[in-house]
Design a protein around this nucleic acid. Structure first.
Lengths: 266, 266
DNA sequence: TAGATTGTTAATCGATTAACAATC
DNA sequence: TAGATTGTTAATCGATTAACAATC
């Protein structure tokens, strides 16, 4: 959430603002690409362009890490790769479990980026007994019963939840009880976690809805009155405006829009 | 960001702040759940708790939409569902194409949330000729050659990119040239797009790195000196600090960390 | 030295939050 | 009316940006 971020501590870590932390991975990716091309140094202007930010913001961000540049020259690519990696905690290996091996969980398990950047898939866990033992991305799927022992045996502190929405909170509770303190949540639910546990959320449905908002606005600005898509029969039938007084009391009309909320795949 | 958000116009849409727009889908989801339980009205306090925000923020957010509540009573659930749906542009149907039908693309195609919330998968597109015609989530995969005609025939304005990083910019260019003006990008690349095109990015690798940052910080605060994961041999070998003068010139030491950047699955 | 580019300052902008008057 | 809860104000906080002195 990319999107909507939930419940991160407002506390700044070592004085580095959250907004800066969120951009460090972007810089790291751009720097790694330069490193592969054996580019020795890079200016804030060049690197900012590659990362898609402006150079003033980049220099400000780097100033929180320390003075790693050279005036008149720029930044040493290899050195900066190391410093940002260290700052992000990527100089150590993070064992990760993925819970919920449906379409999405399998896609995540096959995701090559895990291994290359300090993350290692320690186990794949699913509640379906029929899945147990089946290999996905080279690893045998383990049953949920084993969740606690897997976490403690591997010293796992980061968990990825890719279950249906209905199972997410329960899985979350078990992960946290077993010692996990960071959770990446792909299920479309707000997770309740105790103090000290970080949750980040990735939600396709929310991202699409934000795009639709802006898309609608663009359509409205054009001379063409007809929108790109056809109006939805279920919602269009509702009144365009409701007298404010009617909102009071319990006279809520039950509309035809009783569909289930968008739910991520299992 | 999710995720890091890229290149959205800073312009506020109809006076609604970006931060508010990003929360509207959260409110909508919580309201839909209440609607299913036939709850007629809800207070800002209750709804805020369900959505995981504080009530002052929620009331402020709603104030940008209009005065849809009733003092002393709360908000009419059905009415608010409709108003937020309309504001987000979900009262119309948005045809969407998914490009890149690998593990992730298939997971997205199977994602049930698409259809239920105003989005309709118009086509699945892949560059592999061997994939063409194969059914995924009930739809035959179309070849990239057909991209332009699919876009125009279906009036598609939203595209989802789930290709490898290397193909993303090219796919993006073709989508935009064919008339797509909103892109949801799952490939770990900064996309260059012309003015007026919105890009949102979903990036697993970035989310994990942000979690690792906070996780590392937690480990450092504990009395236990040993971190959860083992140090990485490749990066740990690098110097902890480098004299600033050494950063100048072209004497960049080529470290052992020349691995590829994290890349989303194809 | 002259040119280039960083690191930092200060102004601006946007988002969050508590508090409370308005009002159902 | 009395109690409850919204909608809005104003203060605070954090993030962005341009500009430029410092300095390689």
């Amino acid at each position: 959430m990319a999107t909507g971020r939930t419940h991160r501590p407002a506390t700044r870590s070592r004085g580095i603002p959250e907004a800066t932390v969120a951009r460090l991975p972007l810089y790291l990716r751009a720097l790694t690409a330069l490193s592969e091309r054996s580019v020795p140094t890079v200016s804030s202007e060049e690197l900012a362009t590659a990362a898609g930010v402006n150079s003033a913001k980049l220099r400000k961000d780097f100033s929180y890490l320390g003075s790693y540049g050279t005036r008149g020259v720029g930044y040493d690519v290899e050195y900066l790769v190391y410093q940002i990696s260290r700052e992000l905690g990527l100089t150590q290996d993070w064992p990760v479990v993925i819970v919920g091996i449906g379409n999405l969980g399998a896609a995540l398990a096959n995701y090559g980026g895990f291994a290359s950047r300090g993350f290692r898939v320690a186990a794949l866990i699913d509640a379906d007994p029929a899945m147990a033992g089946k290999p996905v991305a080279g690893l045998p799927v383990r049953h949920t019963d084993e969740l606690e022992s897997i976490i403690s045996d591997n010293g796992v502190s980061i968990g990825v939840i890719a279950t249906p929405a209905g199972a997410a909170q329960q899985v979350c509770d078990r992960l946290v009880a077993a010692g996990v303190t960071s959770i990446l949540n792909f299920a479309p639910t707000v997770l309740a976690v105790p103090e000290g546990v970080d949750v980040r959320k990735v939600d396709l449905s929310i991202e699409l809805q934000i795009l639709a908002f802006h898309e609608q606005r663009k359509a409205g600005e054009e001379t063409t009155p007809a929108p790109a898509g056809a109006p939805r029969a279920d919602l269009a039938a509702r009144p365009a405006a409701q007298p404010r007084a009617a909102a009071a009391g319990t006279s809520a009309r039950k509309g035809p829009d009783g569909e289930v909320p968008a739910v991520m795949p299992a």
